[in-house]
Amino acid sequence: MEHVLNQRDKNSLHVQRRVERKKEHYCYPLNLTKGFEYVMKNGIQREEDMPFSGCPRDVPDHTPSSQLGYIKEFVRLNTIDEALIQLKKHPIGAALAVFQPEYKNIGKKIYRGPVSQNSMLRHMHAVSLVDVGEENREKYVLARTSHGEKFGDGGYIKISLEVVLLYIPTPGEKVGKKAKKYFSKPRSLLGRFSYPRLLTEAKEEMQKKIHQDKQLSCDESIV
């Protein structure tokens, strides 16, 4: 996905944003890798300028500013164990397997994925892992979601670290493509771990200047 600064591409971003995942929740249908690549090139608003409120339909346009934050690169991790080691230092991005209806009804309980015959894998959803804990001798990781403070426990969800899933179709069953793709081998509810590496202050200021110059040049060409 090529993110840039002319009006046609701005309109394209609006289209990308308006993908409805569930009632009153909208997301870009892209993974964390694409998100990090975007931040490297274009920057991202800081949380104090755009407070966490979930993913509503009407999101303000991305406005170039000296207050945007940039990253140097991002690092991929292969296993949950590697992710937990890095989590001691900083948050970790991950993809969570969303099974319904368990996910939407989770509240303050620990999320364990499918717990009934009616459970269905809907998609993988990006979350930010922020902490680990233990409840009734069950270890879990605490993750921040993009659903806003009304979801889970104030916008956070506890994800069990003790669940391992493997998809084995029963004879005569219609094979679930998503389940086969993500769970053909034993794995946890979480995967696709990654985190950003930051620029030095001087290099970040240089990146801001480059991006602002590109924006001004594009605005002049549109006029």
Rank of each mutant, 00 (worst) to 15 (best):
N11I: 04
Q86P: 07
G172P: 14
T200M: 10
S12E: 00
R46A: 04
G54I: 09
N118K: 15
F52I: 12
K214M: 13
V4P: 03
Y28G: 03
L30R: 11
R187S: 01
S194M: 00
D131C: 08
I222F: 03
A143E: 04
N136C: 09
E204T: 00
L96N: 00
K185S: 05
P171R: 14
E47D: 04
L84K: 10
R57H: 11
Q16D: 01
N78C: 05
N6S: 04
F183M: 05
Q212R: 13
K88G: 07
L32I: 09
Q67Y: 12
D58T: 03
I168L: 15
N42A: 10
P51N: 13
K104Y: 06
M120H: 12
R112I: 02
E135I: 02
L121K: 02
V115T: 03
M124G: 10
V19N: 03
D81S: 04
L189D: 00
I110Q: 03
C27K: 00
R17A: 01
R122F: 07
F183L: 14
D58S: 01
V127R: 06
Q212K: 13
M124N: 05
K109S: 07
R76Y: 09
Y195G: 09
H125F: 05
L199I: 08
D81E: 08
E73S: 10
S188G: 14
K88N: 08
I210W: 13
K139V: 08
T145C: 04
I157K: 01
G69V: 03
Y28H: 08
S221A: 10
K203D: 06
K185D: 02
I80S: 03
E20C: 12
V19A: 05
S12Y: 01
V164W: 03
S188C: 12
F74Y: 15
C55E: 08
P29Y: 10
Y167C: 13
G43L: 02
G176D: 05
Y26V: 09
Y182S: 01
V15T: 08
S194T: 00
F52P: 02
F74Q: 14
R137E: 03
M120I: 12
I168S: 05
Q45R: 15
D219K: 11
T33E: 09
V141M: 10
R112N: 04
S194V: 06
F99K: 05
R144K: 13
G176W: 05
E135Q: 02
K214R: 08
S119M: 14
V19P: 12
D131E: 15
L30K: 09
P114R: 10
R21M: 12
L68K: 15
M206A: 11
